[in-house]
Design a protein around this nucleic acid. Structure first.
Lengths: 252, 252
DNA sequence: TGCTTAATTTTGGTATACCATATTGAAGAT
DNA sequence: ATCTTCAATATGGTATACCAAAATTAAGCA
């Protein structure tokens, strides 16, 4: 039984689960033009993605609303939004918990994400501007720099940016949005996987091929590469066994 | 300026826009175990998909809540859900309107849906059970029957069922869900397109090929077929010009 | 001591009240 | 007659109140 709380500085699980270092949380401000529900959804999304709210953890409406200084109404709307996004699971008349995907779920998600990236890569080969490709190349070399320094965090973030840039270059808003959402759902898992990954050189060589493919605008090749690129993530994840934080019937 | 109202029996636009005949609307019942927000989302989804609420039409919370015999709270939650689904557009502090995709949007959606179906088809070739393929074959022949009778409505529904069955056979829940959602967003448009389609025989021959591919479990072939199968829809849509019901600054 | 059951508390679901902003319509000035 | 300005109204956004169903705890029984 773990005891992860909403507050930073909680006690257990920290030896096995390093906190995810990331951008600061989105914050809720009075003078934003966005409705509170939307702002709350953004904050909550960050909290779940960054493992501040770990998988399976019940989300109590009153307490969380109080912490965010909003009422339950916009918070509930935010929860509905995140449920459609797959980051929150709504249990009928039993409230919400942070999504807790099974290993099988993760396998499906990675397969799906690979497919999306493959499609996007194929389209990107046809539609990317030369400037977009230049930027991808630049990111690639930045990533190599992070690799050389063995800076796993920097590597991870650059890796994400490259994939994102490739998908953006597809020019299809639905691919972009779908990619972003699925990425959020997998972020936690891939982050952990990245920090432990022993097959780093393999990933690097795959990326070399990806860069070559987009540079030569080889659509079929890039599709295939990106389709299977995430496979290594799955191997890592499955080797590590643990995917989520399992049951969270305890807390606070 | 059109005058389509929520109530049946409205006046104009009916000569150019036949109502979409479909299954009865989901209904809101007291004794359902689903929360009202979820039920309302289902009803609203049907109303939008079936063009009872036409694209661009403002959705007034109080009036609609009254019509559905619920309060604004669950209705608003439903609107948030549908917004994530892309069926509703939320204008900040100006409420919600039924989604009104531009021709460009539709083009992207069809491209995306084709990609999803291609991926699903490829996986289906590898994973479909023989029984699933049998069922697809059966649906195919039912569809041919509808074609022989020139029963466009029956044809359309069977066509949808075939595509759905193929995607289901992929065994990937995310592909299935994504397909279903995108299908909902395109339903209205494809329905209209189907009712006017002049290249019916072409579609039929494509379906013959699709059936052959899944029967022989030719993954690459089926991917390609399904990927480009929807292209004809776009040609039709773009030829017809009008995609949505344009502006709806008037109403009620 | 362990199990069943009843009282209590917590929690999610829904309705309503209230507020601020946006929209509409009327009045007045040019 | 047209534009401007201001009041009236409608509408979305948020908070709160209330209820019913769960979950928890306490009490009673075997």
């Amino acid at each position: 039984m773990s005891n992860i709380t909403l507050n930073a500085g909680s006690e257990s699980d920290l030896d096995t689960y390093e906190p995810i270092v990331d951008a600061p949380l989105a914050n809720i401000s009075e003078n934003s033009d966005l409705p509170l529900a939307q702002q709350a959804a953004n904050v909550l999304r960050d909290m779940i993605v960054q493992d501040i709210i770990p998988p399976g953890k019940p989300i109590r409406e009153r307490t969380l609303a109080q912490q965010l200084n909003i009422s339950r109404t916009p918070l509930r709307e935010a929860l509905r939004i995140l449920a459609v996004d797959g980051l929150v699971e709504l249990l009928p008349s039993r409230g919400a918990i942070a999504a807790n995907p099974s290993p099988e779920d993760v396998k499906h998600m990675l397969e799906f994400l690979g497919g999306i990236e493959g499609l996007a890569g194929e389209l990107a080969c046809k539609r990317a501007t030369d400037e977009e490709i230049d930027e991808i190349r630049a990111l690639h070399y930045e990533m190599l720099a992070a690799f050389a320094r063995k800076d796993r965090l920097a590597y991870f973030k650059l890796n994400q940016r490259i994939h994102r840039a490739l998908v953006m270059a597809s020019g299809n808003p639905l691919l972009i949005e779908t990619h972003e959402r699925m990425n959020a759902r997998l972020y936690r898992i891939r982050y952990r996987s990245n920090m432990r990954n022993t097959k780093w050189p393999t990933a690097i060589s795959e990326h070399e091929e990806i860069l070559k493919a987009i540079e030569s605008r080889d659509a079929v090749k890039l599709n295939d590469l990106m389709r299977n690129h995430l496979g290594s993530t799955w191997i890592k994840v499955s080797e590590d066994g643990q995917v989520g934080t399992a049951d969270h019937h305890d807390n606070d």
